[in-house]
C-alpha cells in the first residue's frame, strides 16, 4: 500500500470541484461500477476492509489518475483474481472458463433491497474501553499497521503522534488492521478523539478549530 490515499492535510490539490447540477451518477457506467462492486462483494469472498485495502493498493500513478469509480472497478478486478474468483486469463480474454462454484451465492434482484437495508454493522462484543471520556491520549507514530508491513490501517498520517482527548466511546468494533488481511475481526474499543487543529497543523486556520477522528484503542497510548 502506497499511502497515496492518505491525503488529509496535503497541499497542492487546487479548488474543490463543486457542481450543483451533478446527477447521482455522472456517467451511466458509474452506477454500473458501483452495482457490480456491491454485487461481487455479496459473494462473501472478502470484507469491506479488504476491498478498501485493495483500492489503497492500486499503484500510486493509478490511484492518482483514476476517478472514484475507476478505482473501485480496478481494485475489484485485482480482488477477483487475488481471491481466485476469476483468473487473470479470463480477465484478459473476457472469456469465461466455466461456471463458478460460488454461483449459488449470486445476489438475486429480489434480494437487493433486503441486503442493502441489512448493511454490515462493525460493532461487536468486546473488551470494555480503557480510556474514559475526557482522558488525554496520544496517537501511534508513525501511522502504520503494526502487524502487516505496508498493511491497511485507519490512522491517517496527519494525526500520528498527536495529543488528543477522548470525546466519546462507541463500544468494540472490528479492527480494520487485521480484518483487511484475513487475520480476523479482533474487535477493540473504538473512540472519537478530539484534536486541536493547532496541534495537528502547527498553525490552525482559526484559533479554536478542531478535528475529530474515530480511532481504535491500539492506535492510542495514555499521555504520560
Amino acid at each position: 500500500m502506497s499511502r497515496v490515499h492518505d491525503m488529509g492535510g496535503r497541499w497542492g490539490d487546487g479548488t474543490v470541484p463543486v457542481d450543483p447540477d451533478e446527477p447521482v451518477f455522472k456517467d451511466e457506467w458509474h452506477g454500473r461500477a458501483l452495482a457490480v462492486t456491491l454485487a461481487a462483494g455479496a459473494l462473501g469472498q472478502w470484507t469491506l476492509d479488504t476491498s478498501r485495502h485493495a483500492r489503497e493498493a492500486l499503484g500510486t500513478k493509478d490511484y492518482t489518475r483514476f476517478g472514484y469509480y475507476e478505482k473501485w472497478i480496478s481494485a475489484l478486478a485485482d480482488l477477483l483474481v487475488a481471491k481466485g474468483v476469476v483468473s487473470r486469463e479470463e480477465l484478459a480474454t473476457g472469456q469465461s472458463n466455466g461456471d463458478s462454484p460460488l454461483a449459488d451465492r449470486k445476489l438475486l434482484a429480489e434480494r437487493v433491497p433486503a441486503v442493502l437495508a441489512k448493511g454490515g454493522p462493525s460493532a461487536r462484543d468486546g473488551a470494555a474501553p480503557l480510556y474514559p471520556v475526557g482522558a488525554r491520549v496520544t496517537t501511534r507514530r508513525p501511522a502504520r499497521n503494526v502487524m502487516v508491513e505496508g498493511g491497511h490501517t485507519r490512522l491517517p498520517a496527519y494525526a500520528a503522534g498527536v495529543e488528543g482527548v477522548i470525546l466519546s466511546q462507541h463500544g468494540a468494533h472490528v479492527l480494520p488492521d487485521t480484518n483487511a488481511h484475513g487475520m480476523g475481526e479482533c474487535p477493540e474499543p473504538l473512540y472519537t478523539v478530539l484534536f486541536r487543529a493547532s496541534d495537528l497543523w502547527g498553525r490552525a486556520e482559526n484559533e479554536g478549530d478542531e478535528v475529530t477522528l474515530d480511532l481504535w484503542e491500539s492506535y492510542l497510548e495514555p499521555l504520560a
Binding site: W29, A103, K106
Partner: peptide, 27 residues
C-alpha cells in the same frame, strides 16, 4: 473505464456470479 466495467459485468454474468437485474435494482 466504461469498457472495463462492461468487461467485468459480462465475465461475472457468464460465470453465474452476477444477476444483471440485481445491478439494475441497486442502481
Amino acid at each position: 473505464p466504461a469498457l472495463r466495467v462492461k468487461a467485468l459485468e459480462t465475465l461475472l454474468t457468464e460465470k453465474g456470479l452476477i444477476d444483471p437485474a440485481a445491478l439494475d435494482a441497486i442502481i
